[in-house]
Write a protein that binds this DNA or RNA. Structure first.
Lengths: 340, 340
DNA sequence: ACTGGCACTCGTTACAGTCGAGTGCCAGAC
DNA sequence: GTCTGGCACTCGACTGTAACGAGTGCCAGT
């Protein structure tokens, strides 16, 4: 299959024009707007080949061409160059963090920044507990049989949980439990804690064993199970840009998908170190998102990856710009979190 | 202005029909679907009066009538009866809370429940800190000059904040500070703390005074300022029901408004005890929400109001059903929080 | 291998005509 | 005085036709 350089140029031009105008692009308009050095007729021949190969298609017989998911994929993989951030964007990113007082604040600012810069729906996963380590564990007596258990992770994330104890506890007991738990668990990665937690039960004096067993259960539930993954979302209003031309007319399935934390976690939480991942249209496993593209990446301190973030938008999106922004924001957030 | 009983019946019938069919309702259809005991012609005369008074209007000359905001207002105030919950709804509400492990969980379940039952956008404010009281304050040393400060409220809400200390602290210093702060503040309502916090600085030994002053500042910031109000949202996908016929075609302004915490707080956070408030269309002060109605109420334990919750939807909504659901959910959440 | 020319397709727009739901009004009945 | 049946009228929704034009595919010529 002959996809020579010019055909690739044509595809690139089609993608760029369609992304910016939102309208099917014809051969004549193409040669006018790009210096291709050939006539419309030649471009038409190239287009016919590109269509045969499945990179573009015609919405109607008498309309211009539109990239297919496959076309976007080729564009992203081989035809686009990184678009450097504008100074304004750079400044916006640098400025967004001044005055961020805590983790919540950082995450919220980040997600809004991403939404604003890319003009798309932005998603930021809170630093995953599984990938953090324990900085401190606190037990606060609420009543003799109730404890509030608070965990502080090195990322600044705090989780708490009310625990019902099997038998009344004395203040000294609580102190003992607290000391023991902290001794054994502080500093270890949460994903490594299960064996440590198990071992805790044996470390303790027999009379405290039931209490510690209860605590251990709750610890495992809170620290290890998926429940504690949190996610922030912003920019849903951006879905309405392009007046429903994207998304074949219905925002419904997309809004529904965005409300499912499980789905968001699947999209933005499963990241490999320093890899930026792009899912275009049909490449999405989520049926509701077949009309969208997702750009996601991990962020973290150095090689240690903490969580994922990214954006979701129409397949017709400015990939080079979006990619650059997502990368830059991820790097900044990572640096910021490394500071504390 | 003569609005006799029959005219009111006609208005009620119009509202009910329009809400359920989503289409302008004409005189003939009205007498067929409701036992009004009069002819279409009579109804038409009544309609003319209702229109003159501004309760209904005609989208086009040859179309049926549609209630105006004013018409809905009259309907809500004087024409609708409370619609009892269905057993299924009752069961759903009772079931939603089983297994709620912490405050986050309660709030999330509540907001999803509300969205599901009313089929609208649901909003739940976390128990307001200003209206809670302090259960415990914890200081966790991160380094010699950094503390993590954690506050646990009686509602189960937990707030944390990283504090940079002006000078290194010893472990004993931290213990002292912790004890003192807890002694003075535990049990008091957050809105009452500012003078207490001020007094703290004087209670402490001179060498700890700078440290305490720093802490006091952070305490005030964290506890008293608006920043700490949190809000949960669900059901935005419900905005797309009725295929953009509501909302004059654009979800944009509504989605934008829903992203502004400030706006949501204004709508759902300013509640008076056990009052259910309804804002219909133009009655909203937020321009972006002129095409929507908001039903909000407070929830709390007994007379002590903790926060607000409610729903937002098209002015064309099932007011009696929505009101009943919002009330019921608020009561349940209040009871649930009272238990802990 | 590229180009100019040409016939063809088909969606878009405009316009005219019909249909019918719904109205307002009025004269007459109760 | 209030309600009703009847009737003319309005106007949006829908249908069909025609003209338009952007864009294409193909082919012969350079």
């Amino acid at each position: 299959m002959g996809l020579d350089d010019r055909k690739l140029d044509v595809l690139r031009a089609i993608v760029e024009d369609y992304v910016s105008t939102q309208e099917p692009v014809g051969s004549k308009a193409l040669v006018e707007r790009h210096q291709l050095g050939v006539s419309p007729a030649t471009v038409r021949n190239d287009m016919a080949v590109l269509e045969e190969e499945g990179y573009i298609r015609q919405p109607h017989t008498s309309a211009g061409r539109v990239p297919t998911d496959r076309g976007y994929r080729l564009f992203v993989d081989r035809l686009s160059r990184v678009k450097p951030l504008t100074p304004a964007e750079r400044r916006a990113i640098e400025r967004f963090l001044v005055g961020a007082v805590d983790l919540d604040d950082v995450v919220h600012r980040t997600v809004r920044l991403l939404a604003q810069l890319t003009r798309q729906v932005a998603v930021v996963q809170y630093p995953s507990l599984a990938r953090s380590s324990v900085r401190h564990l606190e037990l606060v007596p609420i009543s003799t049989t109730r404890l509030m258990f608070v965990m502080i992770a090195d990322t600044g994330r705090v989780e708490q949980r009310l625990v019902e104890m099997p038998a009344p506890l004395l203040a000294d007991d609580v102190t003992d439990l607290r000391r023991l738990i902290n001794e054994k668990l502080v500093g270890s990665r949460l994903s490594d804690t299960p064996p440590l937690v198990q071992a805790l039960v044996d470390e303790v004096t027999p009379d405290l064993r039931p209490a510690m067993a209860t605590l251990a259960t709750v610890l495992l539930e809170t620290l290890v199970e998926r429940h504690e993954e949190r996610i922030a979302l912003a920019g849903t209003a951006n879905l309405t840009r392009g007046g429903l031309l994207d998304f074949q007319g219905s925002l419904r399935p997309i809004l529904e998908a965005l409300e499912e934390e499980v789905i968001l976690l699947k999209l933005f939480g499963e990241v490999e170190p320093s890899t930026l991942r792009i899912r275009i249209g049909d490449e999405n496993e989520i049926d509701n998102l077949r009309a969208t593209s997702v750009v996601s990446t991990g962020y973290g301190t150095g090689s240690n990856i903490l969580g994922g973030l990214g954006v979701l938008g129409p397949t017709r999106m400015d990939y080079p710009g979006t990619i650059a922004t997502v990368r830059a924001v991820a790097r900044y957030v990572g640096d910021l979190l490394a500071q504390n």
